[in-house]
Design a protein around this nucleic acid. Sequence first.
RNA 1: GCCCGGGUGGCGGAACGGCAGACGCAGGAGACUUAAAAUCUCCUGGGGGAAACCCCAUGCAGGUUCGAUCCCUGCCCCGGGCACCA
Length: 839
Amino acid sequence: MGNSVTKTSYPFHELEKAARKLWKDEGLFEIRDPMKAERPFYCLNMFPYPSGDLHVGHGRNYILGDVVTRLKRMQGYAVLTPMGWDAFGLPAENAAIANQIHPATWTKKNIARMKEQLVHWGLAYDWDREIASCDPSYYKWTQWLFLKLYERGLAYRAKGAVNWCPSCNTVLANEQVLPDGTCERCGTPVETRELEQWYFKITEYADPLLRDLEQLTHWPEKVRTMQTNWIGRSEGAQIRFPFEGSSDVIEVFTTRPDTLLGATYVVLAAEHPLVTRLKSEGKLPRAATDLVERLKKARVSNRFLVETEKEGTETGIHAVHPLTGAKLPVWIANYVLMGYGTGAIMAVPAHDQRDFEFAQKYGLPIVEVIRPDPKQGAAYDGTAAYEGEGKLVNSGKFDGLWSAEGKRAITEALAAKGAGEPRVNYRLRDWLISRQRYWGAPIPILYCDKCGVVPVPESDLPVLLPDQVEFKPTGESPLRTNEKFLRAKCPKCGGTARRETDTMDTFVDSSWYFLRFLSPTDSKRPFDTPAVNRWLPVNQYIGGVEHAILHLLYSRFIVKVLRDMKLISFSEPFERLFTQGMITKNGVKMSKSKKNTVAPDDLIERYGTDTVRLYTLFIGPPEKDAEWNDRGVEGAFRFLQRYWKLTMDVVDTAGAETLSPSAVKRASAGFAPSGPRRDLRRRVHQLTHQIVTDMDRLHLNTAVSGMMQYVNALDEFRDGGGDLTVPEVTEAMHLGTRLLAPMAPNTAEGAWQGLGGPGSIFTSGWPAPSKEAMQSDTISLVVQVNGKVRSSIEVPAGADKATIESAALADPKVRTYAAGKQVAQVIIVPGRLVNVVVK
RNA sequence: GCCCGGGUGGCGGAACGGCAGACGCAGGAGACUUAAAAUCUCCUGGGGGAAACCCCAUGCAGGUUCGAUCCCUGCCCCGGGCACCA
């Protein structure tokens, strides 16, 4: 089959070559001076990790971005369309361990290969702005970013329970652990370890990160919801319970202070500091210490199992109810987690299902304090907790208040006693950024025996990764044992210091790269503030939904920090976000490991890049997943062939002089007032309208379909004996070619040159349909009887309702269906239909 | 359990509340050809009918409406997110 294809008269390879040369010569997609370019538009694809080969599934992302880029260019914008490489990361290091190849070498090789593929794909990137996050000239500034956060107290080191991936040999941020407790990258079950690690204080920005989501009206609702859930804001109160025999207090967080009088016991997480202390002081009963040990061990692996049965034990100590003074037993239980709130709760079994189950199991008292309607019986019926709101009962002076009032009144009463206050709690945890890996940006910190933790002075950046290192199969970072790297001089006291050996999470690299593209080679500053302020937020950001939380939340955080540092003037990095669906093959995501990838190279070789582009766009709505079908590619190819032949036929018959744009402009006098030529022109403008609208909304599958109909319309015109030299055809070719250009740029550019140019099609402006041309003299209306289609009538375009009604009632089929019945109503929808309601 | 998507021919998918299935793929018939490929033409949701036409059909059951794939209620499946979050 390959043979027959290459014999086609559609010379896609030549077209690609010529088009690419023209675009390069004209510098169509390059921004020379960001401060001077008019009408800036920043179109960005998430920069990829250079994993090696690209498949057609990856291509969807880039093709979408390229269509936007070219469309905006035609609409007269100066489009910034850069590309770079998220080039630090574990696969390079794993390759190093497996094949004894340096991560830098491996990464560079992959970058070269992928760049070749992107170029082959004909994507319009401004390669002069290419960046790679593993380049010292880039990661110098990632380190600078760390120092800035450190200066502001937003980077800190702390010991705590962390996620450890035993396969990746490193810790992970919460965002990088999947809901089933496995590593986001490799799928290995994550373990818990107590380690001292570096964090970014993203929780400080929880509220702005949440609030500003409201501004992001051009983000998919889904992504905003996911971020909202992830941040997990809840309002309530922090309440302090003193406990007997100590001046200490147990702090709990609750969203239901209105149920405080129903609290009958207090529960601590096994990891709660008080538990640790009591244990070390020998004040815990044997059963309790045993349980604590068991729970801590179980949590290493079972932390994510929700279905675990509730289990607990008494500590022997008692807390004092802050309002009633009642003695409440303090328990330790597996259903209270250290990772949320204070790691301690007040248990209200009548109104919290978890507490209820626990209280039942251990025979703890249950006191009802909320009733939806006090006149009716209890909502709490002894079989399950009532978790709704209502009026307070059994709550002393608070009886009769509604939950909302009760919350306020009880919180105020606590505040008056100094026993509590309103509190907003977040699910979001700080961002753990240290990684025990080599192939990342070293954290620019020194440990001095005398001065303690000392940041590397800005002037000493970058802290370079040592080149001569050995990768051990144990997976231990070679930095840990590299004496040359480790040894340093303390910038404060001049004494000996030891370097931090952890590197930064690669999501730090990608949290600011979109700023770097404006000044990719600047060695003085991380980014050019005026240029960045002019071009950002990114007008159109395109990438996979898998970053809905990770990259997109981190970037938003960093941008807000930089704004607070007055280094940029905007608060959000990405104005419009588009998350494309993945392409599946045999129902599953394309991936090397599943061996179901489709390589673009062969397809481009055989059919040309425009065919691959067009099919990728046509496959379905871009935001949804879609199944790849090799036969579908041929459909796209057939269309382009037909389009090309048609263009060449028009050029041959009409000749250049009738085709030039000025001739087209003059042609309007020659447009036919009626007949097939007029019909063609109407159809062409209607389709133009549809395609323009679809492209604006990124409904590219229907835009491609519109182009197919466009060619069908012209073919039908010709088959019906139409003359290709008439001005209607010339106009159609000029419009259609420009409409096609963002989607099939090489073919369209070639056609444009054939049609007499001048210049690149991408400087020819974006078409607009003519309202007048879209109008028709008569319209055909569907006629329904009682909502069922029975006939259709032809009426003048401007016909009034009375005319339409009588025409409809006169229709023989309508008369048949209306026979013997009364016409109750006639509904007329202008331009659409008539519905005759009979009884 | 809660919150988002989604369920339409053999397949991918179209349809401001207004002719369900655009466009394409696959399939069928034909033209061209010694033949095949390529190309072109016509047909192609199901059922009934010689035909004109008629009936059924957008996961299921209701509702609102002159009219519902679209809006509302309940339910069933599929995908995603959150989840002992206090």
